[in-house]
Design a protein around this nucleic acid. Structure first.
Lengths: 216, 216, 216, 216
DNA sequence: GATGAATGAGTGTTCATTCAT
DNA sequence: TATGAATGAACACTCATTCAT
């Protein structure tokens, strides 16, 4: 186990700040999502990133700073995808269906996002509240929902007077909760709710609940 | 085991195993709910409990063991309250309304339960899966929902063919998600969603969603 | 939020891995020899080494790992010195005399070695058995003894048919036991057996026992 | 010490001070011999003894006090057995043979004694030195050896001028060392030295060494 | 005399963070 | 910019010992 004193040539000194930064963020996302803020290990993030601890402190100040960056990045990603949604020309019912499917599937393929949000809620959104960046990322989904509800009501296919914020929360809940609690639910019901079939059944039911409710 | 004495230990050496045990569990519930498993501190739990660390290890083996006990106790508590629900003689619609209200308000007044469940899901329900005790506590709510759906369908006030498990998840989601994500949602929407008014609005909306969906 | 930390200067960050490592091993040897494995304190070793606890775990994994390294090093040291012995050209009787003296004096000036071996025997050689390194360090003394016995027998100055392994154990015993039990023996006999004179008397006697036995 | 009572304590509350005392000492001997003073656990001793910790402190003051009692008892036992030796009427050579066999076999069947003595030497015989009781138990073996050497010399079968104390140490060494270091030796030589055959070979060799040396 | 709950000072180990190179 | 050795505070957990019953 004797370590040589010879100065090592440095096998992978990348000297690519942006790459290093991104590698750290990627590694941190995984680690934080797996273990939460308190459970995550800076050493582990450094190892996973292929970089080293010093760089984490260089770029992000400290563990908490890194957490904030990861959180901001996760929100950005979601918002970017949400922006891609265009239901303006869809029929209200189709639009709502599409939108719920998007939300459901986003949760399905981004379990880290779920974990991150739950952790952030554990901290009473302390980081989020201090992030100007995130507060500015007002969810565009709300605008889309508002538009759909208004058009639906005007066309007589949706009931009137539905509050868009409540509708938003309901839609979010129907997707998020399932994946957020999938392990405890699977355990209690004795089924693997992450299976393809279970997910489809769940999505169909959710859509039916919302559309059933919206019908006048 | 005498439980006649008050929970607060005397000046020193109270010598009441059951009381000590309970005090530790109470303190642990608070600490775990506030900081999660990794973030919780055994020292802090000991201090809060008015006892000392050694007793924690005496009664619960280690931190993980304590976590499991706290989790089991939280589930038990919920199940006990659920058992008290009797909607057998209510009209299906009233029963459903009552049941949703119960679920919503349980989440509202037991934020620790929310935090605990989220943390347990972070661990992929690893503890839950190993707890025979909890697995046996099959949620009685499911039976109640099944009964309501059947009676409602028979009486023609509810649509037919609704899967009780899906219905259960939907109801749970509509209550749990709101309180689970209340801090991030409050931050993003810039309102205090924990206010009485917001809660009432939310509950009313949720009930309306479910009943609107169920109407044939 | 995660941990409150204050930056302290720290007077000496030597940054010399090999030196740090060695300092730890040196300190550990003393501490282990003085108090055994269970009685030794990692804190104490860190303090004596002039380094800190974290480095111990960095280099040796844990207390047991450190013990193993110390043990291995002690064996290596003995083996190195043993290698320096060259009795090939000495007359058998002189060679045997020299060899016993070496063994006796090695024990005399390496009391830590004695303590270490006794502790390891308390653990039923559990660490030794798992150390590939040590098992490979087959004692060269045995080869030397074998050669002496053979030459002596051939030359007619030593009795024939003496088992080298038994001879080895006898020689080892006559040196090791004295120093291993010197404190209890001194107490019981009411003399300081560590004195120069006592040691000389003892060595002379031991040599005489072996040579007396070996004479045909 | 009354030995009339049966060793088995009652199901609970035995109210037999002497029995409790003895059970504790028995348990402590095993625990101390297995793990040394520092490594032994008071809890474990209490559990093994079938009694409880309070009694240990009642009877022996503290852990160190218990150690001293165990040590004294071990010495007493050895001295009692040594007293049973009667070689006064044996021929010197037979006497010496018998005595070495006794010593060897005593070590063989009392490994706890070995462990205890080694531990005590680790502490530089600190406890022994403070035990008036033990210091008074001057080894009777020495007298026996002196007698044998004198008779042997007078009869012309043993060499003259052999120091009895040196002879005592040599004999002790030849028995004690083998069992004291049996695990490390077994590991290094790759044989189980505790086997019947190995022991016999060893004893025969030891006797031959001493007798070979003593012959004029 | 006996029991076992209670205690506080450790004890090995891990962590986020800093600094020399 | 990059590296990884170094640090001390904290962490989970253990121990000998005491005390109420």
């Amino acid at each position: 186990m004797t370590k040589s004193k010879v100065a090592k040539p440095g096998p992978k000194r990348s000297r690519q700040p942006e790459v290093t930064r991104r590698n750290i963020l990627d590694a941190a996302l995984v680690e934080f999502a797996e273990k939460g803020l308190a459970g995550a290990r800076v050493d582990e993030i450094a190892a996973r990133s292929g970089s080293n601890k010093r760089m984490i402190y260089e770029y992000f100040g400290n563990k908490d700073g890194l957490w904030l960056f990861v959180l901001e990045r996760a929100y950005e990603k979601m918002r970017e995808e949400e922006h891609a949604i265009d239901v303006a020309r869809m029929k209200p019912e189709d639009g709502m269906r599409y939108l719920m499917e998007f939300n459901f599937k986003f949760c399905s393929r981004n379990p880290e996002f779920i974990a991150l949000l739950n952790a952030e809620n554990l901290h009473k959104a302390g980081f989020l509240r201090n992030s100007k960046k995130i507060r500015e990322l007002y969810t565009p989904l709300l605008a889309v929902i508002t538009d759909l509800l208004e058009r639906g009501a005007k066309e007589g296919v949706f009931r009137k007077g539905v509050d868009p914020v409540e509708m938003y929360i309901t839609i979010a809940a129907l997707g998020f909760f399932y994946f957020s609690n999938v392990h405890t639910l699977s355990t209690i019901f004795g089924r693997n709710l992450l299976g393809q079939k279970s997910q489809k059944t769940r999505l169909d039911h959710s859509i039916e609940v919302v559309l059933g409710y919206l019908r006048p």
